[in-house]
Design a protein around this nucleic acid. Structure first.
Lengths: 341, 341
DNA sequence: CTGAAAGCGCTAACAC
DNA sequence: GTGTTAGCGCTTTCAG
């Protein structure tokens, strides 16, 4: 029954055990071509009882086909990429493609290494976060000759094609919504991440829209590492000590915004009358806070879904047409922390 | 410079471009064997300018070696597995092994599929969550002939070896700590997941230790889906309506415990005097809550680290000895919600 | 230090 | 419906 010999089983073993040629065994195992019911049963029986697991390495080399899609993302620890993965998996499960995840920790050199490593397995497509990559990475992607979808961001020029939102616009829209509610003394808090281009673009869009209204950010603060909830609390405290006049706090993600919210509530500050708040991402995780946080969803699942569909479609038909850039539209939810009565 | 021909580059292309035999090119690219400085440079130059990326499929088939470690986990969405991954990656980065992640969504059939798929790439080792697997999965793991580490749990019999904590004991220890503080009317809230064996074992250990002290759980409630924070809040509200006499709430994870905490605070219930709380996991994410939640860390990063070390060690030396079960010891942190004054 | 030959386990393409 | 042959792109092994 089990395999005692350390040598892994091969098609040949199944062939011998079933008295059918290797080729026919292969056909049965892949459901390819016509095979008589009787031999099919013999083969499946033999394969099962031996515990045969096909060797995809050999199969891929022979067929020049690899059903893998490389998915390259900066991190698994925040809520955003798991949701993108969910979208991707949902679509790919309907196909014979399989996602393989690589994580870059927001480091361009690591991205390069991971990409090289993944491309060397000759995947059928690449889904990669962001539009900013090293020259070498872009060159590899171009030279690979496979479909590449850059996700999350549309502010830039994709190597092949992109699905995402405009983070500049997201920042602008939030600024406009805040101004419209009559807030004027605005503070910003975010990650100290020169390499998080999307956070940077949101910040840029935000200040740009404020500037257009003749307003400058009153104060700003950046953090790195640690528990986001705790950091949001600390930064908010510090900032309000420095600038008690602030009437709005814009956070670059929902987690630190939640920390800020808890701080304000603890200190009896009236929300959103005295101070308003908003975050970014729309993480469901945070439903259940004492107040519903204003935020902007980043269309994460949809980005994953669309990206996977593009890959699947183009693997299916390499000459099919496709949009070079698909820009999704995030929506603001006002919650209880942005709308002044 | 770039590759216009859709055909991917091969060693032969580099060989021709550099005027060196394929074999020597291969040696240079893998840093194997002695190659003169001058030919080495010629080769690297040629490979780089062509944008050559080696084909690992062919390499793996020829060398019968695949530097991949299959990591099979139920989910990426909660905080627990990303931390395990961190531990694994940290160790494997020091070696030439690479983790490849598969997700099962807590479904045994999906686990079986994912495992089959991964084993068909002939990885050098498997790290898989839990000790409960279908017969077919166990058979595959055994037959694979590669090192297998089952992680998270030690209450059971591993196929090969295991690293984790005893969730039964964890439940018992928490029960003892709660009783020691004088709490007596205890409610339990958790996930409605017959397939989350570790949550189940904690629950069993918990009730068992209470029983030994002659106490039964006063009330219990299970949820599925939705935002854990919100669910914790809702369940807590319902339970306290049903059983206003409750003096302690034990939650099967920190996220719902946090929701419960926020509910109690909102309703002016005194913690931990009137009602105490505890969760499970020790998620750093939650630092920053108004009170520090009592919890028990699950040694997640350490589990990842140890598991990866075992794989790396056994890949290095297949006949090295190893412990079949490594049980780590979780520690209770009392925070502000368990210690009665 | 470098090269030539053989073959890893499978599948495409073609017989029968 | 089934079998045969010839590789896929690399590395192992062995000669020089």
């Amino acid at each position: 029954m089990a395999n005692d010999d350390p040598r892994p089983l091969t098609l040949r073993d199944v062939s011998e055990a079933s008295g059918v040629s290797e080729m026919t065994v292969s056909r049965v195992l892949r459901n390819r071509g016509d095979v008589s019911q009787s031999t099919r049963e013999k083969v499946l029986e033999a394969a099962k009882s031996l515990g045969y697991v096909p060797n995809k390495i050999a199969g891929a080399l022979a067929s020049q086909r690899v059903n893998l899609v490389a998915v390259i993302i900066p991190s698994l620890s925040n809520m955003v990429f798991p949701e993108v993965m969910t979208g991707i998996s949902r679509v790919l499960e309907e196909t014979d493609l399989q996602p393989v995840v690589g994580v870059t920790d927001y480091l361009p050199e690591k991205e390069e290494r991971v990409l090289y490593e993944m491309l060397s397995w000759r995947p059928s497509g690449v889904i990669i976060a962001g539009l900013e990559h090293s020259d070498a990475s872009r060159a590899m992607l171009k030279a690979s000759g496979i479909p590449v979808v850059e996700i999350m961001d549309t502010d830039g020029t994709p190597v092949d094609c992109a699905v995402g939102i405009s983070h500049r616009r997201a920042g602008r829209e939030m600024a406009k919504a805040i101004l419209k509610q009559g807030y004027e003394k605005i503070g910003f808090m975010g990650t100290k991440m020169p390499l998080d281009h999307r956070a940077r673009k949101r910040f840029e869009g935000f200040t740009e829209a404020l500037a257009k209204a003749g307003i400058e950010i009153t104060d700003q603060e950046f953090y790195s590492g640690g528990s986001a909830l705790a950091k949001g609390r600390e930064m908010t405290e510090k900032m309000l000590e420095r600038e008690p006049e602030l009437d709005f706090l814009y956070y670059s993600n929902d987690m630190i915004a939640a920390g800020g919210l808890l701080y304000l509530l603890d200190n009896g500050i009236e929300i959103p009358g005295q101070v308003g708040l908003a975050g970014f991402n729309g993480v469901e995780l945070l439903d259940g806070l004492p107040r519903k946080l204003a935020t902007m969803d980043a269309c994460r699942t949809e980005i994953g879904t669309k990206a996977a569909q593009i890959i699947a479609g183009r693997v299916d038909d390499p000459k099919a047409a496709f949009d070079p850039i698909i820009e999704l539209t995030p929506t603001i939810s006002y919650g209880d922390t942005l709308r002044r009565r």
